[in-house]
Write a protein that binds this DNA or RNA. Structure first.
Lengths: 204, 204
DNA sequence: CAGTTGGGTGAACAGACGTACACCGAAAAG
DNA sequence: CTTTTCGGTGTACGTCTGTTCACCCAACTG
């Protein structure tokens, strides 16, 4: 019973590590099986197809991403300054991408090049992130009279920037000075956006 | 002599249309050849490999993108308001993505999932866009005392948002109401960023 | 007009691919 | 202790892949 779970994990990990080189659509069932150390047909005991495997990986990736977002949110109590929010967010993202490089690389690739079903699932999950961020922003001081659309547009912009930052960190390939440059840029960009948000609608 | 050029074009077009479904790494030389109507071996008369084909497509795509950027810039003479700049930029981008959907789809896919050499070329071209935008912003009123880094950080943010917008337009798949929603969001986001830029460093 | 270049052909190869099938052996269920 | 379940095995198939080679014929060159 637990052997199945172990093999399933091995398949997921193998797919992630093979995905370092090429996109999921180009990964073959046989490659995965060889990497895991099982015969090709045994693959079907766990997944219907490579696409099915991809969907499982998306779910897994976003579980860890959501954990990260919760960690950022778990900083209430004191009213933080904008700088604190920005710094904490970027630091958390950086650390998390570091720890789950494989998952983030997978999401970055498949978001643009995966099978349609996988792309759709990723798109949907990212939209959920945007919505959650929007409700968070709504709780911040100074956004009282914002419209719901403007809130969502702003959170969309921030999420876009964070996704791009995560991709840049992955591309930095672990070289510390490159990662530092990326996160410094991200910090500045977030501050610029938040400053813009502060003067929004106050002087329309 | 002109037959070679015609076939070459046909190969480029075939690669683009096949790239609608899957990423370049998953497109086979034989598929392309069949689509063009030539025998597989004839492919080698024009390109060394699929990756070589990809590099040619990147160049071609950015030629048209640069034409677009020049078109946006070709609006000097009168000092435009920020709203005018934003509207003109978004409209131009929308129209251009519409006209070159295949190229933009290709860039979006290969930027994240292409062969390393193709990814590198795309990354380099996008950085060139960022630099050009930075010099444009520097000419705008109100950015006199910005540092070079801040200028580049801002243009990076804007380019990121525009790339995401282009991808969203491509994903809209030509449905007019979806495209309109995307471009409205893009307009608002650009305005937010520019408003932030205006209060940047003026009150540090 | 004869000669050379070069884009396109067709057959052939060795290997990788997805998938179907019959089978095995350990663990869970009775 | 027997039976059933089920993850993993091995073989086999037809198809598609990249790349090679010898060949052909239209179009430029002299």
């Amino acid at each position: 019973m637990e052997r199945k779970e172990r093999t399933r994990r091995a398949i997921l990990d193998a797919a992630l590590s093979l995905g370092e080189e090429s996109s999921l659509g180009a990964v073959s069932l046989r490659q995965v099986a060889k990497e895991v150390g099982i015969v090709p047909t045994a693959f079907y005991r766990h997944f219907d197809s490579i696409e099915d495997l991809g969907l499982a990986l998306v779910d897994e990736s976003f579980v860890s991403l959501r954990a990260m977002l919760r960690a950022i949110r778990r900083s209430d109590g004191t009213i933080p300054t904008f700088t604190e929010i920005v710094d904490r967010s970027v630091v958390t993202l950086e650390e998390h991408v570091h720890r789950h490089r494989g998952h983030f690389r997978f999401i970055a690739r498949e978001r643009a090049a995966g099978p349609p079903a996988v792309k759709a699932r990723i798109h949907h999950e990212i939209q959920l992130c945007e919505r959650e961020l929007a409700t968070d922003i709504a709780r911040l001081p100074g956004t009282d009279h914002w419209s719901a659309e403007d809130l969502h547009v702003l959170s969309g912009l921030i999420v876009t920037a964070m996704v791009a930052t995560a991709e840049a960190i992955v591309d930095a390939g672990g070289r510390p000075e490159a990662e530092k440059r990326v996160s410094d840029v991200a910090r500045t960009q977030l501050r610029m956006v938040l400053i813009g948000a502060l003067s929004w609608k106050s002087q329309p």
